[in-house]
Nucleic acid binder design. Structure first.
Length: 575
DNA sequence: GCCGTTTTCGGCCCGACTGTTTTCAGTCG
Protein backbone atom coordinates (compact mmCIF):
# COMPACT_ATOMS: atom_id res chain seq x y z
CA UNK A 1 0.00 0.00 0.00
CA UNK A 2 1.85 3.13 -1.17
CA UNK A 3 2.03 5.92 1.40
CA UNK A 4 1.09 9.56 0.74
CA UNK A 5 3.66 12.30 1.23
CA UNK A 6 2.02 13.41 4.47
CA UNK A 7 2.34 9.87 5.84
CA UNK A 8 5.99 9.68 4.81
CA UNK A 9 6.67 13.05 6.42
CA UNK A 10 4.92 11.90 9.60
CA UNK A 11 7.03 8.72 9.70
CA UNK A 12 10.23 10.74 9.29
CA UNK A 13 9.15 13.08 12.08
CA UNK A 14 8.37 10.06 14.27
CA UNK A 15 11.89 8.77 13.67
CA UNK A 16 13.30 12.18 14.60
CA UNK A 17 11.26 12.33 17.82
CA UNK A 18 12.27 8.85 18.90
CA UNK A 19 15.93 9.36 18.02
CA UNK A 20 15.77 12.58 20.01
CA UNK A 21 14.50 10.77 23.09
CA UNK A 22 17.16 8.09 22.58
CA UNK A 23 19.79 10.83 22.72
CA UNK A 24 21.05 10.44 19.15
CA UNK A 25 23.31 12.94 17.35
CA UNK A 26 21.27 16.18 17.10
CA UNK A 27 22.40 16.76 13.53
CA UNK A 28 21.23 13.36 12.47
CA UNK A 29 17.87 14.18 14.05
CA UNK A 30 17.77 17.49 12.21
CA UNK A 31 18.42 15.67 8.95
CA UNK A 32 15.27 13.59 9.51
CA UNK A 33 13.22 16.67 10.39
CA UNK A 34 14.46 18.53 7.32
CA UNK A 35 13.65 15.54 5.15
CA UNK A 36 10.13 15.40 6.65
CA UNK A 37 9.60 19.03 5.73
CA UNK A 38 10.98 18.55 2.23
CA UNK A 39 8.73 15.55 1.56
CA UNK A 40 5.71 17.32 3.06
CA UNK A 41 6.14 20.23 0.65
CA UNK A 42 6.82 18.22 -2.50
CA UNK A 43 4.49 19.01 -5.34
CA UNK A 44 4.25 15.42 -6.48
CA UNK A 45 3.47 12.19 -4.62
CA UNK A 46 6.67 10.32 -3.84
CA UNK A 47 5.31 7.02 -5.24
CA UNK A 48 4.69 8.78 -8.57
CA UNK A 49 8.20 10.26 -8.56
CA UNK A 50 9.68 6.84 -7.82
CA UNK A 51 7.64 5.25 -10.58
CA UNK A 52 9.04 7.85 -12.97
CA UNK A 53 12.55 6.96 -11.91
CA UNK A 54 13.29 10.20 -10.04
CA UNK A 55 16.40 10.29 -7.86
CA UNK A 56 15.23 11.33 -4.41
CA UNK A 57 18.79 12.10 -3.32
CA UNK A 58 18.77 14.99 -5.78
CA UNK A 59 16.48 16.74 -3.29
CA UNK A 60 18.22 19.17 -0.92
CA UNK A 61 19.21 17.63 2.40
CA UNK A 62 18.43 14.11 1.21
CA UNK A 63 21.32 11.77 0.61
CA UNK A 64 21.54 8.08 -0.22
CA UNK A 65 20.47 6.89 3.22
CA UNK A 66 17.38 9.07 3.55
CA UNK A 67 16.43 8.42 -0.06
CA UNK A 68 16.43 4.69 0.65
CA UNK A 69 14.37 5.14 3.83
CA UNK A 70 11.85 7.37 2.05
CA UNK A 71 11.51 4.74 -0.66
CA UNK A 72 11.02 2.04 1.96
CA UNK A 73 8.36 4.08 3.77
CA UNK A 74 6.64 4.97 0.49
CA UNK A 75 6.42 1.32 -0.49
CA UNK A 76 5.66 -0.32 2.85
CA UNK A 77 4.33 2.44 5.11
CA UNK A 78 7.24 2.09 7.53
CA UNK A 79 10.93 1.27 7.66
CA UNK A 80 13.26 -0.95 9.64
CA UNK A 81 14.68 1.90 11.71
CA UNK A 82 11.23 3.14 12.73
CA UNK A 83 10.23 -0.41 13.59
CA UNK A 84 13.28 -0.81 15.82
CA UNK A 85 12.69 2.51 17.55
CA UNK A 86 9.07 1.68 18.19
CA UNK A 87 10.10 -1.61 19.78
CA UNK A 88 12.66 0.04 22.03
CA UNK A 89 10.48 2.94 23.15
CA UNK A 90 6.86 2.71 24.20
CA UNK A 91 4.25 3.85 21.68
CA UNK A 92 3.04 7.36 22.28
CA UNK A 93 6.08 8.54 24.23
CA UNK A 94 6.85 11.09 21.52
CA UNK A 95 3.64 12.93 22.41
CA UNK A 96 5.33 13.92 25.69
CA UNK A 97 7.59 16.18 23.62
CA UNK A 98 4.55 18.31 22.87
CA UNK A 99 4.29 19.32 26.53
CA UNK A 100 5.80 22.80 26.79
CA UNK A 101 8.95 22.71 28.91
CA UNK A 102 9.67 19.08 28.12
CA UNK A 103 12.37 18.23 25.64
CA UNK A 104 13.95 14.91 24.80
CA UNK A 105 16.26 14.82 27.81
CA UNK A 106 13.57 15.38 30.39
CA UNK A 107 11.17 13.01 28.61
CA UNK A 108 13.83 10.31 28.79
CA UNK A 109 14.37 10.91 32.50
CA UNK A 110 10.64 10.88 33.22
CA UNK A 111 10.25 7.65 31.33
CA UNK A 112 13.19 5.95 33.04
CA UNK A 113 12.40 7.15 36.56
CA UNK A 114 8.61 6.99 36.57
CA UNK A 115 7.79 4.74 33.66
CA UNK A 116 5.37 7.32 32.22
CA UNK A 117 4.49 6.77 28.58
CA UNK A 118 1.58 9.11 27.94
CA UNK A 119 0.47 12.63 28.77
CA UNK A 120 -2.26 11.19 31.01
CA UNK A 121 0.26 9.15 33.01
CA UNK A 122 2.54 12.15 33.34
CA UNK A 123 -0.35 14.24 34.55
CA UNK A 124 -1.16 11.69 37.26
CA UNK A 125 2.48 11.41 38.30
CA UNK A 126 2.69 15.19 38.70
CA UNK A 127 -0.53 15.30 40.67
CA UNK A 128 0.74 12.61 43.04
CA UNK A 129 3.95 14.57 43.66
CA UNK A 130 6.21 11.95 42.09
CA UNK A 131 7.79 14.31 39.56
CA UNK A 132 9.44 16.65 42.06
CA UNK A 133 11.19 13.72 43.68
CA UNK A 134 13.31 13.18 40.57
CA UNK A 135 16.81 14.63 40.49
CA UNK A 136 16.72 17.70 38.28
CA UNK A 137 13.04 18.43 38.85
CA UNK A 138 11.64 20.55 41.66
CA UNK A 139 8.24 21.76 42.82
CA UNK A 140 8.16 24.50 40.16
CA UNK A 141 8.80 22.03 37.36
CA UNK A 142 6.17 19.71 38.74
CA UNK A 143 3.56 22.45 38.85
CA UNK A 144 4.47 23.56 35.32
CA UNK A 145 4.07 19.98 34.09
CA UNK A 146 0.76 19.68 35.89
CA UNK A 147 -0.57 22.85 34.25
CA UNK A 148 0.85 22.06 30.84
CA UNK A 149 -0.47 18.50 30.72
CA UNK A 150 -3.90 19.69 31.81
CA UNK A 151 -3.88 22.17 28.91
CA UNK A 152 -2.44 19.55 26.56
CA UNK A 153 -5.33 17.23 27.30
CA UNK A 154 -7.58 19.96 25.88
CA UNK A 155 -7.85 20.82 22.20
CA UNK A 156 -5.13 21.91 19.82
CA UNK A 157 -5.10 25.68 19.96
CA UNK A 158 -3.94 27.15 16.68
CA UNK A 159 -6.21 30.02 15.76
CA UNK A 160 -7.16 31.37 12.34
CA UNK A 161 -5.07 34.21 11.00
CA UNK A 162 -7.87 36.78 11.01
CA UNK A 163 -8.47 36.26 14.72
CA UNK A 164 -4.75 36.55 15.45
CA UNK A 165 -4.77 39.81 13.47
CA UNK A 166 -7.44 41.24 15.77
CA UNK A 167 -5.69 40.29 19.01
CA UNK A 168 -2.29 41.42 17.75
CA UNK A 169 -3.69 44.74 16.54
CA UNK A 170 -5.06 45.60 19.99
CA UNK A 171 -1.88 44.53 21.81
CA UNK A 172 0.37 46.45 19.42
CA UNK A 173 -1.67 49.62 19.82
CA UNK A 174 -1.23 49.38 23.60
CA UNK A 175 2.51 48.69 23.33
CA UNK A 176 3.07 51.55 20.88
CA UNK A 177 1.58 53.98 23.38
CA UNK A 178 4.09 53.11 26.14
CA UNK A 179 7.00 55.45 26.87
CA UNK A 180 10.27 54.61 25.15
CA UNK A 181 8.61 52.48 22.43
CA UNK A 182 9.61 53.61 18.94
CA UNK A 183 7.94 50.87 16.94
CA UNK A 184 5.69 47.95 17.82
CA UNK A 185 5.23 45.32 15.12
CA UNK A 186 4.01 41.78 14.57
CA UNK A 187 6.46 39.05 13.63
CA UNK A 188 6.33 35.24 13.49
CA UNK A 189 3.82 33.25 11.48
CA UNK A 190 1.34 36.12 11.76
CA UNK A 191 3.63 38.33 9.68
CA UNK A 192 4.40 35.48 7.31
CA UNK A 193 0.61 35.28 6.89
CA UNK A 194 0.30 31.58 7.56
CA UNK A 195 -3.24 30.19 7.53
CA UNK A 196 -3.29 29.61 11.25
CA UNK A 197 -1.20 30.97 14.10
CA UNK A 198 -0.03 29.01 17.14
CA UNK A 199 1.15 31.97 19.18
CA UNK A 200 1.70 35.67 18.64
CA UNK A 201 5.22 37.06 18.27
CA UNK A 202 5.49 40.79 18.88
CA UNK A 203 8.55 43.02 18.69
CA UNK A 204 9.19 46.52 19.99
CA UNK A 205 12.18 48.76 19.38
CA UNK A 206 13.15 51.04 22.21
CA UNK A 207 14.92 54.35 22.58
CA UNK A 208 16.54 54.14 26.00
CA UNK A 209 14.88 52.41 28.89
CA UNK A 210 11.22 51.52 28.85
CA UNK A 211 8.76 49.81 31.20
CA UNK A 212 7.35 47.92 28.22
CA UNK A 213 8.14 44.36 29.36
CA UNK A 214 6.81 44.89 32.89
CA UNK A 215 3.68 46.58 31.61
CA UNK A 216 3.15 43.81 29.08
CA UNK A 217 3.21 40.99 31.65
CA UNK A 218 0.91 43.05 33.88
CA UNK A 219 -1.70 43.52 31.15
CA UNK A 220 -5.29 42.93 32.14
CA UNK A 221 -5.82 40.19 29.54
CA UNK A 222 -2.87 38.18 30.84
CA UNK A 223 -3.78 35.04 32.73
CA UNK A 224 -0.33 33.50 33.21
CA UNK A 225 3.30 34.63 32.85
CA UNK A 226 5.52 31.92 31.38
CA UNK A 227 8.76 33.91 31.23
CA UNK A 228 9.71 37.40 32.25
CA UNK A 229 13.21 38.71 31.55
CA UNK A 230 14.65 42.12 30.80
CA UNK A 231 14.36 41.87 27.00
CA UNK A 232 11.77 39.19 26.56
CA UNK A 233 8.54 37.89 28.04
CA UNK A 234 5.99 35.17 27.31
CA UNK A 235 2.45 35.22 28.59
CA UNK A 236 -0.77 33.29 28.10
CA UNK A 237 -3.83 35.46 27.58
CA UNK A 238 -7.20 34.70 29.13
CA UNK A 239 -8.25 33.47 25.71
CA UNK A 240 -5.57 30.75 25.97
CA UNK A 241 -3.39 32.33 23.29
CA UNK A 242 0.34 32.56 24.00
CA UNK A 243 2.05 35.86 23.21
CA UNK A 244 5.82 36.38 23.10
CA UNK A 245 7.22 39.89 23.26
CA UNK A 246 10.80 40.86 22.51
CA UNK A 247 12.29 44.32 23.07
CA UNK A 248 15.45 45.49 21.29
CA UNK A 249 17.32 48.79 20.91
CA UNK A 250 16.51 50.72 17.74
CA UNK A 251 19.83 49.91 16.05
CA UNK A 252 18.98 46.20 16.25
CA UNK A 253 15.43 46.53 14.97
CA UNK A 254 15.95 45.15 11.45
CA UNK A 255 17.97 42.13 12.58
CA UNK A 256 15.49 41.41 15.36
CA UNK A 257 12.54 41.67 13.01
CA UNK A 258 14.09 39.17 10.62
CA UNK A 259 15.00 36.86 13.48
CA UNK A 260 11.58 37.03 15.13
CA UNK A 261 9.67 36.73 11.85
CA UNK A 262 11.37 33.45 10.96
CA UNK A 263 10.64 30.96 9.76
CA UNK A 264 13.13 28.99 11.76
CA UNK A 265 14.27 27.22 8.62
CA UNK A 266 14.73 30.57 6.85
CA UNK A 267 16.79 31.91 9.76
CA UNK A 268 19.02 28.87 9.84
CA UNK A 269 19.64 29.20 6.11
CA UNK A 270 20.45 32.92 6.48
CA UNK A 271 22.88 32.30 9.31
CA UNK A 272 24.61 29.54 7.42
CA UNK A 273 25.00 31.88 4.45
CA UNK A 274 26.42 34.56 6.75
CA UNK A 275 28.84 32.06 8.20
CA UNK A 276 30.13 31.19 4.75
CA UNK A 277 30.98 34.86 4.32
CA UNK A 278 32.76 35.13 7.65
CA UNK A 279 29.83 36.96 9.24
CA UNK A 280 27.60 36.20 12.18
CA UNK A 281 23.89 37.03 12.34
CA UNK A 282 22.00 37.21 15.59
CA UNK A 283 18.96 39.21 16.66
CA UNK A 284 21.15 42.25 17.37
CA UNK A 285 22.73 42.68 13.97
CA UNK A 286 25.27 41.38 11.50
CA UNK A 287 28.79 41.07 12.90
CA UNK A 288 32.27 40.60 11.48
CA UNK A 289 34.23 39.52 14.49
CA UNK A 290 33.17 41.95 17.18
CA UNK A 291 32.28 44.72 14.73
CA UNK A 292 28.66 45.36 13.93
CA UNK A 293 27.97 46.12 10.28
CA UNK A 294 25.91 49.28 9.78
CA UNK A 295 22.18 49.09 9.17
CA UNK A 296 19.08 48.94 11.33
CA UNK A 297 16.66 47.70 8.69
CA UNK A 298 15.73 44.30 7.32
CA UNK A 299 16.94 45.40 3.89
CA UNK A 300 20.39 46.15 5.35
CA UNK A 301 20.59 42.70 6.92
CA UNK A 302 19.77 40.93 3.69
CA UNK A 303 22.13 43.19 1.78
CA UNK A 304 24.98 42.42 4.17
CA UNK A 305 24.85 38.77 3.11
CA UNK A 306 24.42 39.51 -0.57
CA UNK A 307 20.65 39.10 -0.85
CA UNK A 308 17.76 41.22 -2.04
CA UNK A 309 15.02 41.93 0.49
CA UNK A 310 12.77 38.89 0.87
CA UNK A 311 9.06 39.41 1.54
CA UNK A 312 7.91 37.78 4.81
CA UNK A 313 5.42 35.51 3.04
CA UNK A 314 8.31 33.85 1.20
CA UNK A 315 10.49 33.18 4.25
CA UNK A 316 9.99 29.44 4.50
CA UNK A 317 13.28 28.19 3.04
CA UNK A 318 11.47 27.00 -0.07
CA UNK A 319 13.93 28.42 -2.57
CA UNK A 320 13.55 32.12 -1.72
CA UNK A 321 17.17 32.51 -0.63
CA UNK A 322 18.53 31.10 -3.88
CA UNK A 323 16.06 33.31 -5.79
CA UNK A 324 17.17 36.37 -3.81
CA UNK A 325 20.80 35.59 -4.53
CA UNK A 326 20.10 35.33 -8.23
CA UNK A 327 17.88 38.42 -8.32
CA UNK A 328 14.86 36.47 -9.51
CA UNK A 329 12.48 36.92 -6.59
CA UNK A 330 8.85 37.26 -7.64
CA UNK A 331 7.13 40.64 -7.48
CA UNK A 332 4.21 39.43 -5.39
CA UNK A 333 0.62 40.29 -6.23
CA UNK A 334 -1.02 42.98 -4.06
CA UNK A 335 -4.67 43.71 -3.30
CA UNK A 336 -4.67 46.73 -5.59
CA UNK A 337 -3.86 44.49 -8.57
CA UNK A 338 -7.31 42.88 -8.46
CA UNK A 339 -9.74 44.22 -11.06
CA UNK A 340 -12.70 42.00 -10.28
CA UNK A 341 -14.15 39.10 -8.34
CA UNK A 342 -15.47 36.06 -10.20
CA UNK A 343 -17.35 34.22 -7.45
CA UNK A 344 -20.06 35.88 -5.35
CA UNK A 345 -23.60 35.04 -4.27
CA UNK A 346 -26.71 37.18 -3.89
CA UNK A 347 -30.01 36.70 -2.14
CA UNK A 348 -31.17 34.78 -5.21
CA UNK A 349 -29.46 31.69 -3.72
CA UNK A 350 -27.85 31.71 -0.25
CA UNK A 351 -26.38 35.24 -0.20
CA UNK A 352 -27.73 37.97 2.02
CA UNK A 353 -27.65 41.01 -0.27
CA UNK A 354 -29.13 41.94 -3.62
CA UNK A 355 -27.30 41.94 -6.91
CA UNK A 356 -27.38 45.75 -6.87
CA UNK A 357 -25.95 45.99 -3.35
CA UNK A 358 -23.15 43.55 -4.16
CA UNK A 359 -22.25 45.56 -7.26
CA UNK A 360 -22.16 48.82 -5.32
CA UNK A 361 -19.95 47.26 -2.63
CA UNK A 362 -17.55 45.79 -5.19
CA UNK A 363 -17.29 49.06 -7.03
CA UNK A 364 -16.61 50.91 -3.77
CA UNK A 365 -13.56 48.67 -3.35
CA UNK A 366 -12.18 49.74 -6.69
CA UNK A 367 -13.25 46.67 -8.63
CA UNK A 368 -14.30 46.98 -12.24
CA UNK A 369 -16.38 43.82 -12.57
CA UNK A 370 -18.07 41.10 -10.61
CA UNK A 371 -19.40 37.69 -11.54
CA UNK A 372 -22.60 36.62 -9.84
CA UNK A 373 -22.40 32.86 -9.43
CA UNK A 374 -25.36 31.34 -7.61
CA UNK A 375 -25.42 27.74 -6.48
CA UNK A 376 -27.15 25.24 -8.76
CA UNK A 377 -30.31 23.26 -8.07
CA UNK A 378 -28.86 20.13 -6.43
CA UNK A 379 -27.61 22.28 -3.56
CA UNK A 380 -31.08 22.59 -2.04
CA UNK A 381 -29.87 23.98 1.31
CA UNK A 382 -28.44 26.97 -0.57
CA UNK A 383 -31.64 27.49 -2.57
CA UNK A 384 -29.73 26.63 -5.74
CA UNK A 385 -31.09 27.83 -9.09
CA UNK A 386 -32.66 25.71 -11.83
CA UNK A 387 -32.46 26.66 -15.51
CA UNK A 388 -35.60 28.80 -15.41
CA UNK A 389 -34.47 30.88 -12.43
CA UNK A 390 -30.98 31.22 -13.85
CA UNK A 391 -32.49 32.44 -17.14
CA UNK A 392 -34.44 35.12 -15.28
CA UNK A 393 -31.29 36.19 -13.44
CA UNK A 394 -29.42 36.45 -16.73
CA UNK A 395 -32.07 38.88 -17.97
CA UNK A 396 -31.89 40.84 -14.73
CA UNK A 397 -28.10 41.18 -15.02
CA UNK A 398 -28.42 42.36 -18.62
CA UNK A 399 -30.84 45.08 -17.52
CA UNK A 400 -28.58 46.05 -14.62
CA UNK A 401 -25.56 46.43 -16.89
CA UNK A 402 -27.49 48.68 -19.27
CA UNK A 403 -28.13 51.07 -16.39
CA UNK A 404 -24.70 50.86 -14.78
CA UNK A 405 -21.96 52.36 -16.93
CA UNK A 406 -18.42 51.92 -15.61
CA UNK A 407 -19.13 48.70 -13.80
CA UNK A 408 -20.04 45.28 -15.19
CA UNK A 409 -21.74 42.28 -13.64
CA UNK A 410 -20.76 39.08 -15.41
CA UNK A 411 -23.24 36.26 -15.73
CA UNK A 412 -22.08 33.10 -14.03
CA UNK A 413 -23.09 30.17 -11.90
CA UNK A 414 -21.47 27.98 -9.27
CA UNK A 415 -22.58 24.72 -10.72
CA UNK A 416 -22.32 21.55 -8.70
CA UNK A 417 -19.95 18.90 -9.95
CA UNK A 418 -21.97 15.75 -9.40
CA UNK A 419 -20.45 12.52 -8.17
CA UNK A 420 -19.90 11.20 -11.68
CA UNK A 421 -18.27 14.44 -12.86
CA UNK A 422 -21.23 15.73 -14.83
CA UNK A 423 -22.50 19.24 -14.17
CA UNK A 424 -25.75 19.99 -12.39
CA UNK A 425 -27.18 22.20 -15.18
CA UNK A 426 -27.63 21.53 -18.92
CA UNK A 427 -25.45 23.07 -21.62
CA UNK A 428 -28.48 24.91 -23.00
CA UNK A 429 -28.39 27.30 -20.04
CA UNK A 430 -24.63 27.23 -19.36
CA UNK A 431 -23.92 28.49 -22.87
CA UNK A 432 -25.76 31.72 -22.14
CA UNK A 433 -23.31 32.63 -19.37
CA UNK A 434 -20.02 34.56 -19.34
CA UNK A 435 -18.38 31.95 -17.16
CA UNK A 436 -19.10 28.67 -15.40
CA UNK A 437 -17.62 28.11 -11.97
CA UNK A 438 -17.69 24.42 -11.03
CA UNK A 439 -17.41 23.12 -7.50
CA UNK A 440 -17.68 19.94 -5.44
CA UNK A 441 -20.13 20.20 -2.52
CA UNK A 442 -20.67 16.59 -1.53
CA UNK A 443 -18.87 13.25 -1.60
CA UNK A 444 -15.58 14.79 -0.50
CA UNK A 445 -14.54 11.30 0.58
CA UNK A 446 -14.22 9.62 -2.81
CA UNK A 447 -11.00 7.62 -3.33
CA UNK A 448 -8.23 9.54 -5.05
CA UNK A 449 -8.61 7.94 -8.47
CA UNK A 450 -12.38 8.47 -8.50
CA UNK A 451 -12.17 12.06 -7.20
CA UNK A 452 -9.55 12.89 -9.82
CA UNK A 453 -11.65 11.36 -12.60
CA UNK A 454 -14.66 13.33 -11.37
CA UNK A 455 -12.81 16.66 -11.65
CA UNK A 456 -11.24 15.81 -15.01
CA UNK A 457 -14.62 14.91 -16.43
CA UNK A 458 -16.14 18.14 -15.16
CA UNK A 459 -13.40 20.07 -16.92
CA UNK A 460 -14.19 18.24 -20.12
CA UNK A 461 -17.49 20.11 -20.21
CA UNK A 462 -17.15 22.59 -23.05
CA UNK A 463 -18.45 25.44 -20.89
CA UNK A 464 -16.33 24.85 -17.78
CA UNK A 465 -14.26 27.93 -16.77
CA UNK A 466 -13.04 27.80 -13.21
CA UNK A 467 -12.70 25.13 -10.52
CA UNK A 468 -13.80 26.70 -7.22
CA UNK A 469 -12.29 25.77 -3.83
CA UNK A 470 -10.57 22.77 -5.38
CA UNK A 471 -9.64 20.97 -2.16
CA UNK A 472 -13.02 21.45 -0.50
CA UNK A 473 -11.40 21.74 2.91
CA UNK A 474 -12.60 23.78 5.88
CA UNK A 475 -9.60 24.63 8.02
CA UNK A 476 -9.74 22.79 11.33
CA UNK A 477 -13.04 21.14 10.40
CA UNK A 478 -12.86 19.14 7.21
CA UNK A 479 -9.73 17.87 5.50
CA UNK A 480 -9.17 18.48 1.80
CA UNK A 481 -10.42 15.77 -0.51
CA UNK A 482 -7.85 13.54 -2.12
CA UNK A 483 -7.14 14.05 -5.81
CA UNK A 484 -4.21 14.31 -8.19
CA UNK A 485 -3.64 18.07 -8.36
CA UNK A 486 -0.95 17.78 -11.00
CA UNK A 487 -3.29 15.97 -13.42
CA UNK A 488 -6.04 18.49 -12.73
CA UNK A 489 -3.66 21.38 -13.40
CA UNK A 490 -2.45 19.83 -16.63
CA UNK A 491 -6.04 19.28 -17.70
CA UNK A 492 -6.82 22.91 -16.89
CA UNK A 493 -3.91 24.08 -19.00
CA UNK A 494 -4.95 21.85 -21.88
CA UNK A 495 -8.56 23.05 -21.68
CA UNK A 496 -7.77 26.71 -20.97
CA UNK A 497 -9.49 26.54 -17.57
CA UNK A 498 -8.46 28.11 -14.26
CA UNK A 499 -8.31 27.21 -10.59
CA UNK A 500 -9.71 29.34 -7.81
CA UNK A 501 -7.96 30.51 -4.70
CA UNK A 502 -11.02 30.89 -2.50
CA UNK A 503 -10.36 33.72 -0.05
CA UNK A 504 -12.83 32.70 2.65
CA UNK A 505 -10.68 32.49 5.78
CA UNK A 506 -12.05 29.05 6.60
CA UNK A 507 -11.12 27.78 3.12
CA UNK A 508 -7.97 29.46 1.72
CA UNK A 509 -8.17 26.86 -0.96
CA UNK A 510 -5.79 26.50 -2.97
CA UNK A 511 -3.02 26.14 -0.44
CA UNK A 512 0.25 28.04 -0.80
CA UNK A 513 2.17 25.11 -2.26
CA UNK A 514 -0.73 24.34 -4.61
CA UNK A 515 -0.48 27.92 -5.91
CA UNK A 516 3.21 27.35 -6.57
CA UNK A 517 2.35 24.22 -8.53
CA UNK A 518 -0.28 26.07 -10.57
CA UNK A 519 2.26 28.73 -11.41
CA UNK A 520 4.83 26.13 -12.38
CA UNK A 521 2.27 24.46 -14.66
CA UNK A 522 1.29 27.76 -16.24
CA UNK A 523 -2.31 27.74 -14.97
CA UNK A 524 -3.73 31.08 -13.87
CA UNK A 525 -5.24 31.29 -10.40
CA UNK A 526 -8.34 33.38 -9.69
CA UNK A 527 -8.56 34.98 -6.23
CA UNK A 528 -12.25 35.13 -5.33
CA UNK A 529 -14.08 36.29 -2.22
CA UNK A 530 -16.97 33.80 -2.52
CA UNK A 531 -18.82 36.65 -0.78
CA UNK A 532 -22.29 35.88 0.56
CA UNK A 533 -22.79 39.48 1.67
CA UNK A 534 -21.33 42.90 0.92
CA UNK A 535 -19.14 42.62 4.03
CA UNK A 536 -17.46 39.50 2.76
CA UNK A 537 -15.45 41.37 0.15
CA UNK A 538 -13.29 41.80 3.25
CA UNK A 539 -12.06 38.27 2.55
CA UNK A 540 -10.08 39.32 -0.50
CA UNK A 541 -6.98 40.38 1.50
CA UNK A 542 -6.82 36.88 2.99
CA UNK A 543 -6.74 35.47 -0.51
CA UNK A 544 -3.97 37.87 -1.44
CA UNK A 545 -1.97 36.76 1.62
CA UNK A 546 -2.28 33.14 0.56
CA UNK A 547 -1.41 33.92 -3.06
CA UNK A 548 1.72 35.75 -1.93
CA UNK A 549 2.75 32.74 0.14
CA UNK A 550 2.31 30.79 -3.08
CA UNK A 551 4.77 33.10 -4.94
CA UNK A 552 2.05 34.43 -7.25
CA UNK A 553 2.67 37.61 -9.22
CA UNK A 554 0.12 39.84 -10.88
CA UNK A 555 0.49 38.01 -14.17
CA UNK A 556 -0.29 34.68 -12.47
CA UNK A 557 -3.72 35.85 -11.31
CA UNK A 558 -6.67 35.78 -13.71
CA UNK A 559 -8.71 38.55 -12.11
CA UNK A 560 -5.93 41.11 -12.30
CA UNK A 561 -6.93 41.38 -15.97
CA UNK A 562 -9.01 44.38 -16.97
CA UNK A 563 -12.50 43.54 -18.17
CA UNK A 564 -11.36 44.29 -21.70
CA UNK A 565 -8.58 41.70 -21.43
CA UNK A 566 -10.66 39.21 -19.47
CA UNK A 567 -13.55 38.98 -21.93
CA UNK A 568 -11.68 37.25 -24.74
CA UNK A 569 -10.08 34.87 -22.23
CA UNK A 570 -13.49 33.87 -20.87
CA UNK A 571 -14.91 33.64 -24.36
CA UNK A 572 -12.16 31.17 -25.13
CA UNK A 573 -13.54 28.79 -22.50
CA UNK A 574 -17.14 29.24 -23.58
CA UNK A 575 -16.94 27.91 -27.11
C1' DG B 1 22.63 12.04 8.20
C1' DC B 2 24.23 15.61 4.90
C1' DC B 3 27.70 18.22 2.62
C1' DG B 4 32.06 20.56 0.00
C1' DT B 5 34.75 27.39 -5.20
C1' DT B 6 39.18 26.32 1.84
C1' DT B 7 36.80 20.58 3.23
C1' DT B 8 35.32 13.34 1.41
C1' DC B 9 36.06 14.51 7.57
C1' DG B 10 34.60 17.57 10.72
C1' DG B 11 31.70 20.56 10.89
C1' DC B 12 26.45 21.53 11.26
C1' DC B 13 22.57 28.96 13.83
C1' DC B 14 22.39 31.63 17.96
C1' DG B 15 20.97 33.72 22.28
C1' DA B 16 17.40 34.38 26.33
C1' DC B 17 15.28 32.47 30.19
C1' DT B 18 14.43 29.04 33.84
C1' DG B 19 15.06 26.01 37.67
C1' DT B 20 18.12 23.93 40.17
C1' DT B 21 22.50 20.43 39.54
C1' DT B 22 25.73 26.44 43.06
C1' DT B 23 27.95 26.99 37.60
C1' DC B 24 24.90 25.35 33.78
C1' DA B 25 21.97 22.00 31.11
C1' DG B 26 17.69 21.99 29.05
C1' DT B 27 14.24 24.16 26.49
C1' DC B 28 12.47 27.42 23.41
C1' DG B 29 11.95 30.40 19.51
Amino acid sequence: MPAHNADIAAALNDIADLLDIEGANPFRIRAYRNAARTVGELGQPVPVMLAQGADLDDLPGIGPDLAAKIREIAETGSCALLGRLRQELPPGIAELLKVPGLGPKRVRVLHHELGVQTIEQLHHAAREGRVQAIHGFGPTSQQAILDATAAQLQEERRIPLWRADQTAGALLADLAALPGVERAVAAGSLRRRRETVGDLDLLVSLSGSSPVIDRFVGGEDVSRVLAHGSTRASVVLKSGLQVDLRAVPAESFGAAWVYFTGSKAHNIALRRLAQERGLKINEYGVFRGRDRLPGATEEALYQAIGLRYIEPELREDRGEIEAARQGRLPVLVVLGDLRGDLHVHTSESDGQDSLEAMAVAARARGLQYLAVTEHSRSLGVAHGVDPARLARQIDRIDRFNEQSPGFTVLKGVEVDILEDGTLDLPDTILQRLDLVVGAVHHRFDLPRAQQTARLLRAMDSRYFTLLAHPGGRLIGERPACDFDLLRVLRKARERGCFLELNAQPARLDLTDTACQMAKAEGVLVCINSDAHSTLEFNHLPSGIDQARRGWLEKADVLNTLTLEDLRPVLAGTMQ
